[in-house]
Structure formats: structure tokens, C-alpha cells
Design a binder for these strands. Structure first.
Lengths: 299, 299
DNA sequence: AGATGTTACGGGGTTCGTAAGCATC
DNA sequence: GATGCTTACGAACCCCGTAACATCT
């Protein structure tokens, strides 16, 4: 019985999949299968019901799972006892939203490479809901994404930044002013992200709450595309204010507050709470130091 | 970081000796040393103060020790979750008192060999105090010995039997009767075991409590020698009643109660409480089934 | 078919024990 | 010099990954 075996078993059990677990631990399916098999033979008990749909725990598996979980937590405890976090190594898969990708992501990667040169990064850009799913499935190690309204207790969370939103439009469409009323907003076609986006979700909440009847003309899953469409005056859109400040300064876009004001969205760094590696807390700290949702790359 | 490393570290720390720990785990000193070294390098911290008198924990070592202890307990938990205890293997060193060696020890060994054919036994016969010392030092895995008055919380204990004592004398010396008074006892020379013996310790307590002035003529560390001396009528002795019943039946010895009566002694099966292997409980159970302090071999 | 878990096998890495090397008492 | 820990090195073993196989959707 070894810690490797327990780790393999733990992730196979919680992810309900040997292959997912193998990906999670950066080993082949074969290796993971064997580690679990070894654990079973060492204990002399079947941990998974090996018949129809595999990867279902036996009764004994349930019991062992709890203990295994505790063992892994203790292992992490021991590792974290010693003072400074040593450089990370291996492969790290993580998810980020497009907004992050377009802003402070390059700086974040630079810092990671600088402090953890042995760590191979595999970032994956997608919408928040997809990222959260991947997180839960163990396909990525952490994600930087907007906070959900419903707190998920399976995920550890570090708040990074609160984003203020503003209405954005081409200067050709709307003359410079401070604020748009609901009536003014309703006169324009609105470009939004697809409904899977947290930004859109938050907007829908706002619009139904204030009885705003919007005329959506386009729902796109790409933030940069939306910016481009807005600059091209296809319609107006609600976008993070700080993100597009540079373009507003350049006169390519005008920004407006709205009345009632748009909701803010909180971005955060999340990882599976049962992931006992130091990777999560360590990189979360780094993210906190680098976070800045101002557009500095691209466009 | 592996469980083997933690185990090596744990025993090196608690036994304050690498060599003792290596004996305890049935590996060479070299192997144990390397396991600890690997653990240290994996944690990036020194666990032992490697200067003057080695095998002294560093501050960090203290912290890790606690966690390691818990890890090993959990490992044992997991192993014991599964139902039946599988056959034991490897080498088992243990200590027994001479009284045990002369009575049910052969049956005990037979049962062990039968149920655990892969287990190599290395029994060691000595007085209780020596056995307890060896136990604490980790030089033996368990011991069968008389209970101490002061309970040692470091040791797990399973009570095996309570021994009633009687005065034994050659029939030539004392005519058959039920009971000896203190005055009668004081008239005869008394043969005792050496003062390290628990039997003797218990007797001293009794004699001082009842103001018995004994005339000791011989203190020997061998129980069988004492029996022989008593049969040869060198003096009288106090011995476990059931042990010598066969010899009383044969007319070689006479047994007498005393007034006040001699204290009883409880024999028990003990092992280090922090020894998380199943060996202790398993063999204790076996001992319970076989225990019988009646003389059946020898003489 | 496609996805998922197991089995077979060869190569590489790890870990063990023997034996020699050091330090301390 | 004895004891106790570390280092060096060859050999056995373990463990990983590739690839073929089995099984269920």
C-alpha cells in the first residue's frame, strides 16, 4: 500500500473515471488502473464494482475513500509544514476566461515561468460555466472565472477582482454623456455573449429585474469579437469598464454609466477543495499579485 | 514522500536510534538511513539534528513526527477495514517469561505456524522487566509477561490469565495440610527468583505488607531451577498453583495456601501501542485461545 | 465505432543489501 | 576500538508507458 495507490484510488473514485483520474495525475490510464488494482490486491478487497458500468465504488470502497481522503490531506499537511513553497514541477492544466486571456494573462504566465521554470502550463480558454464543469471533472487544475451566485462548496476560492461594467458604444452612435437611461438603452440593438457566459447571465438578471426590454441582435461566444462589433457600430454592449478604458481614451468607444447601474461581477481563482497539492494556493497568490483587468494586449 | 519513508522516520524518531528502527522494520541500517534521508530531501528540511549525538529531532522533526504518527494510524485503519486478518508474514520477535515457555508456549507456536506459515518466529525468554525494556526499545514486537502495578500507557495490553500462587514444599518437609500460617512460613528457608522478577516483586510487596520475616537462601533467575531446588528440599517456594498441579498429583511437591493468602498475578500480552501493524491484536487473540499455565512439558 | 478499463511485455528507474568510510564516544 | 550513521555500487525488483485486447454504449 502506497500513497500513490491511494491517490490514484481517490481520484478515480471522486472523478468516477479511471481515465479522468489518469489525466489528473499525469499518468497513463494503464498505470492508474494498475495502481488501483495493486491497492485492491494489497487490501484483499475490491474497491470498485467491476461489472456493468465500472468506476462505481463498492461498500468497502466508500470506507476506504474516506480514509484515503484523510491520508492525502495529512500528506499535504506534512508537505506544507516546512516553510516556503518550493518551485512547482510537472504539468498544470488550467482554465481562464477570454477576458483574462486578453488582459493580465501574459504577465501571469511570465511570473509563473519565472518562479516555477519546471512547470509546464496548459491553459484553456472558455466560458465560465464550461470551466467550472472541467474543474469539477478534474480535467483542469484550477480556473480563473467569474464567481457564481450559488457558492460551490467543492471549490476553494480566492477573490481576485471586482469588475465594474459600463455600456459601450461607438462615438458615432451616441453623443458623449455620463449616463444612459433605460429608455435610451432600449432604443439600440444590443450585442451580448452567449447565454453560457457569466456576463450574460448577470445581465439577464439585471434586465429582468428592472423590466428592461432589450433588442438583442447578436450573441457571440467571443469577447474580442463583441468589442470589434461594437467598434463597428453594429450595436451597443455592456463591457467591463476598466478593460476598455484604453479604447475609450483612443476615442474608438464611448462608455456610459446606466441608471439603474449595471451589476458588478467578481472574478476569482478556484480549484477543487479536495486537491491537496500546494499548486492551488501558490498560484492563487501569484494571480492576486498580477490581476489587472485593463486591456493591454491586442486590439 | 512514501509511507515507507514515514514509517522509517517514525521509528527512528521514537526509538531514538536508526539501528534500532532498522531492526524493528527488518531492513538494514543503510536502507533505513536512506529512507529517512529521502524523506528529508523530499521535504527539503532536516528532521534530525545531524551533529553531535545523532537521532535527536529538529523542531520540524517534532511536527512531522506527529503527522507521521497519524498517517501510520490511518494506514492501519485502512488495512483493518477489510474483514478477516490475512496471514502474517516476515519476522516476528517476541519475548516470553520462563513460566510461559514451560507451559503453553509450544501450543502457541504450533497455532501460529499453522495459521501464519510465512511468519518466522524469534522468541526470547527473559524476566518481565527485561522484556518490558525490550518492548519499549522496539527490540521485540510483543511480549507475554506479568502485568506491572504501574500501568504503562505506551503499551497495549490484553489480559490472558490470572495466576493463583501457593506455597510449595517437598512432602518430606511439611506434612499435608491446607494452610500455612506466617509463623510456619518463617521457619523455613525460602527460594525466590531474582529481584528483577515480577513474581518476586509481588512477593516482596506481600511480605512487607504483612510483616513477614523471610529467610531467603537462594535467589535464582530460573523458574525451573527453583522447582528443582524445591523438589530437592533446599527450601520452600511460592509458585503458581496451577503450574505445578501435575507435580503435586505425582507426590513430588505439596501445595499449601497461606494465611494471609498470596497475591495473584495477572499475565498479559503486550505490544507498543504505536505499533500499528495487525500483528499485535492478531497474535494476542491467538494467545487468549491457547493460554494455560499448567505444566505440560518438561520435568 | 468509440470510449473505457484490463492485460502483456520491454526498458528504465528505483531501492535494496553488502561493504567500505567516517564520526563520535 | 566499539558503536552508529552515511556513502558507494552492483543486482534485483518495481513501476511506468506502449500497445494489443476486452467490454460496454
Amino acid at each position: 500500500m502506497t500513497l500513490k495507490q491511494l491517490e490514484a484510488f481517490y481520484w478515480a473514485a471522486t472523478l468516477s473515471s479511471f481515465s479522468a483520474a489518469s489525466g489528473r495525475l499525469n499518468v497513463t490510464q494503464s498505470t492508474l488502473s494498475k495502481r488501483v488494482a495493486e491497492l485492491e490486491s494489497s487490501l484483499g478487497v475490491s474497491l470498485f464494482a467491476r461489472s456493468a458500468n465500472r468506476t462505481i465504488l463498492t461498500e468497502h470502497g466508500q470506507l476506504v475513500l474516506e480514509k484515503a481522503q484523510q491520508m492525502l490531506v495529512m500528506e499535504a499537511d506534512i508537505k506544507s509544514l516546512h516553510g516556503g513553497p518550493q518551485p512547482l514541477r510537472g504539468t498544470c492544466r488550467f482554465g481562464i476566461s477570454e477576458l483574462t486571456a486578453l488582459t493580465w494573462f501574459p504577465k501571469f504566465v511570465s511570473r509563473i515561468n519565472e518562479l516555477h521554470p519546471q512547470l509546464l502550463l496548459e491553459p484553456y480558454v472558455d466560458l465560465g460555466s464550461a470551466l467550472e464543469k472541467k474543474l469539477m471533472r478534474g480535467e483542469i487544475d484550477f480556473a480563473i472565472l467569474p464567481k457564481t451566485s450559488s457558492g460551490n462548496t467543492m471549490l476553494s476560492t480566492v477573490a481576485l477582482a471586482t469588475l465594474d461594467f459600463a455600456w459601450m458604444a461607438s462615438p458615432r452612435r451616441i453623443a458623449a454623456k455620463d449616463e444612459l437611461t433605460i429608455e435610451e438603452i432600449e432604443q439600440h440593438p444590443i450585442i451580448v455573449m452567449t447565454s453560457e457566459s457569466r456576463l450574460t447571465e448577470s445581465f439577464h438578471q439585471w434586465s429582468s429585474q428592472h423590466n428592461v426590454t432589450v433588442r438583442r441582435v447578436l450573441a457571440c461566444n467571443s469577447l474580442s469579437a463583441i468589442v470589434g462589433l461594437t467598434v463597428a457600430d453594429v450595436g451597443i454592449s455592456f463591457l467591463p469598464r476598466r478593460f476598455l478604458e484604453p479604447m475609450v481614451q483612443q476615442g474608438k468607444l464611448s462608455a456610459f454609466q446606466s441608471n439603474p447601474s449595471l451589476p458588478a461581477i467578481e472574478y476569482c481563482f478556484r480549484w477543487r477543495a479536495d486537491d491537496t497539492r500546494t499548486l492551488g494556493p501558490t498560484l492563487a497568490q501569484l494571480a492576486l499579485e498580477e490581476v489587472d483587468y485593463s486591456l493591454t494586449y491586442g486590439f
